[in-house]
């Protein structure tokens, strides 16, 4: 009985060590593997067969079906240019220039990684649906409060959940080989806070 209890204790210690190492890996991995470009982060080769075991596990946790290069560059952000979390109690403006690629899209996701329910059934803008401004750039507003609608009429805008944080994905299809060697410095849109609920 004592013998069995001793080995059960060893087994529990091994489980705790494995769990601790996994937690540490989850904390450290994004800092090492993700490339940062201003507010955006990207895994340089999320779907490639030669990716590391940690990249494979991280992608499986976040989405499973990632594409290999050069099909798609997939950036994400959950912060604005002041490094503050994107939150549905504020109005945000994303502004950028057209992105050289076959096509691109910008999508807002709820905290759980799924699309945000809205009566308009509008979840994203892509290079064909966006309304460009006169100088060829574009703006997209993110809002969770109906009071902000008057501020963004006739603009590109996406609904987010009030009182909740949200995040934004930027998918760029076939941006070219040069783009992938320059992921840290390519020109990407920025997200600024316009105002918040008082």
């Amino acid at each position: 009985m004592i013998f069995a209890r001793k080995y059960l204790l060893y087994f529990i210690i091994i489980l705790i060590i494995a769990a601790l190492e996994t937690v540490i890996a989850i904390k450290i991995y994004p800092k090492i593997a993700f490339i940062k470009n201003d507010i955006w982060t990207i895994l340089p080769s999320p779907g490639d067969p030669d990716r590391s075991i940690y990249t494979r596990a991280a992608v499986a946790a976040a989405g499973t079906f990632a594409s290999k290069k050069p099909e798609q560059a997939y950036y994400q952000t959950e912060i604005d240019i002041e490094d503050q979390p994107l939150n549905g109690n504020c109005l945000y403006r994303l502004s950028g220039e057209d992105i050289e690629s076959r096509w691109w899209s910008i999508t807002a996701y709820a905290n759980d990684g799924f699309l945000i329910e809205n009566t308009e059934k509008l979840y994203s803008y892509n290079s064909e649906t966006i309304n460009y401004n006169a100088n060829g750039g574009f703006e997209i507003y993110f809002l969770g409060d109906n009071d902000f609608i008057s501020d963004v009429s006739n603009e590109n805008w996406l609904r987010v959940n009030q009182d909740e944080n949200f995040n934004v994905s930027l998918r760029i299809y076939y941006p070219g080989e040069e783009f992938f060697s320059n992921l840290r410095r390519v020109n990407l849109p920025i997200i600024e806070k316009v105002k918040c609920i008082e």
Binding site: A62, T64, S105, D112, G113, F114, L115, Y123, N126, R171
Partner: peptide, 15 residues
């Protein structure tokens, strides 16, 4: 077309 009820894959692309 995916929408806010789509729960099979996380971060589905609506495009």
């Amino acid at each position: 077309k995916v929408d806010s009820n789509s729960r099979t894959v996380i971060r589905p692309s609506p495009d």
